[in-house]
Every structure is written in C-alpha cells, then in structure tokens.
C-alpha cells in the first residue's frame, strides 16, 4: 500500500469523563472510516481532558479496562491512535498514546518529557516514560509517536529516525497564547516551524493532531496539520473548533525524497554515539 489515508480527530474532550470521551472517539472514528481513512489520530489525553490535577487519580485506566477496550475494539475497522492516563500494574500514572489496529493494541508510547513549568504541572501527577521506539502496525509503514512536549526535545525524533520511521505522529494538547506580544507566544508558529523542519531533516511524514476547547480559561488552539518529507504542509485544519481534516500520505514520495536528499543515509550514528559517550564520560 503506497497511499495511507489518515484522519486527524481534532476533538474537544470532556474534562474527566472517560466514557463520554470514548463515545466521542468511536463516533468520530466511524466518520473517518466512512471517509475511507485507514487511521485516525486523536490528541493528547483525548480520553480524559488535559488540566486534570488531582483528577489524574480518578481518570487513570489500565489498558485492559473496559473503557479502553471498547475503543480498541473499534480498530477492527480503522486503526486508532488515542491517548489517556494509563495506570501501570505498579500504579504509575503515565500520559500514554495507544496505537490499536485489528482490534488489538499494537504499540504504547508513554510520554517521556512531562512539562512542569509555567501553566504545566504534568510532572506533579504523571510518571515519566522510559522508552522511545518505533513500531509497525500490520500493513502500515514504520512509525513513531511523540506526545506534545516529547517533540520539543530533538533527541526524541532523532532516536525514532535512526531506528527507522516513515511517519511521526504527534498527539498534542497545545495551549495557545493569542497575544503575540507575549514573549512565550507564538507556540502555534513554533509547532509549525519545528515539525516542518523535522519532516525535512528526517525525510518522513509528520502528523500533528492538537486538541481544541477550553479548560479553566486555557485555550487549546487545534489547527492540526500534516507535513510531507519536503517540509511542505499537505493538509491542515484552519479551525480552533472540532474538526477532522484528512490527509493522503503517499509513501512512494519517501523513495524520491530520500534519494534526492540522503540525510538518513549519511547520518553517522556511530559518530554520535562516540561523542555522546565521550561527553557524558567527561562530565558524568
């Protein structure tokens, strides 16, 4: 399969109501399936809402929980990438993204970089993920997941890239700061610059799905988009409300792009490894 149709489920989750959000995810996944999509990507914490604070404890679900499995079952028709507070067997609470396909969980990424500054307090409630690795769902291209802040650390796409990915999925709960006079503003523009650069540097597709809605006055700006391996935006939502843009990812373009600009071929991971070891050795 050289073309994969991906839907971006730009939803506004109901804060703290997991069953209602599962219903919403299923409903939108069915709409995407009806439009011929093979995969729908939902935003970070789409099953729970974002500003959870002490609600973290109440909305967390182990992956075998019926709420989660109800959505996983939906992936018999269409692959679903969704995000929730995952409670591990040892009761660690992770911000996780789950890729389900064929009615089964294929991959789980636990958010590694938990922003705990400014308006963010993820590190107060969530446990850090400890692995970054790509996965391949049946008949799909190799892919990697970065949850929001993960993507602001270039080591994350780098590690995924050297392990081999054709697509990077970025579920996000990105707050907007509409006043660009604010020095921390322009997170929207930053996301675009960042992910277009990654797509071009790692010659892969990037799919950014950001939530919408408000929680306690915090505005999530949506405007989900997909970028091709030449760094050009190939689909986007112009909306700050719920939306479901669809993008056709033509994997045959990767062959051309990687021959024309063979950055992946030329990347010297052993050099990187040697220098990292030397740097850490001298400082550690």
């Amino acid at each position: 399969m050289t073309v994969m149709r991906v839907a971006m489920g730009q939803v506004s989750p109901v804060l703290g109501d997991v069953p209602a959000n599962v219903d919403k995810h299923i409903q939108i996944a069915q709409m995407a399936y009806a439009q011929g999509a093979q995969l729908i990507v939902f935003p970070e914490l789409g099953l729970t809402g974002y500003l959870l604070k002490d609600m973290t404890y109440e909305v967390a679900r182990p992956l075998d929980h019926p709420d989660v499995q109800r959505l996983v079952a939906q992936s018999k028709d269409i692959d679903v990438l969704f995000s929730l507070v995952e409670e591990s067997a040892s009761h660690r609470f992770h911000i996780s993204a789950v890729y389900a396909s064929g009615g089964k969980i294929v991959h789980v990424h636990r958010k590694v970089y938990l922003p705990t500054y400014g308006l963010f307090e993820e590190g107060r409630h969530a446990a850090q993920g400890t692995d970054i690795k790509p996965f391949t769902a049946p008949t799909r291209p190799p892919a990697g997941v970065m949850i929001c802040e993960d993507a602001w650390h270039p080591s994350v796409p780098y590690l995924l890239s050297v392990a081999g990915v054709d697509v990077l999925y970025v579920p996000a709960a990105g707050p907007g700061r509409a006043l660009s006079g604010d020095p921390h503003s322009g997170s929207q523009q930053f996301w675009e610059r960042l992910l277009r650069t990654y797509a071009q540097l790692f010659t892969c597709y990037v799919v950014f799905v950001n939530r919408v809605g408000f929680e306690d006055g915090v505005f999530f700006f949506g405007q989900s988009f997909a970028v091709g391996p030449d760094g050009e935006i190939i689909a986007r939502s112009e909306r700050i409300e719920e939306d479901m843009p669809i993008v056709d990812i033509d994997l045959s373009l990767l062959r051309r792009a990687r021959y024309r600009t063979p950055l992946l071929r030329d990347e010297d991971v052993y050099l990187t490894q040697r220098i990292l070891q030397r740097t850490l050795g001298s400082e550690g």
Partner: peptide
C-alpha cells in the same frame, strides 16, 4: 501590546461559548 489584539477576538468568542 496593541499589535496582537485583533487576533484575540475569535479566541475570546470561543472562550465565552465554551465556558
């Protein structure tokens, strides 16, 4: 301070509708 003000209108409208 003033330059960015027009951009807040859709956000404030959405804020009122949502909240």
């Amino acid at each position: 301070l003033r330059a960015s003000v027009p951009g807040v209108i859709p956000v404030l409208e959405a804020f009122l509708r949502h909240e």
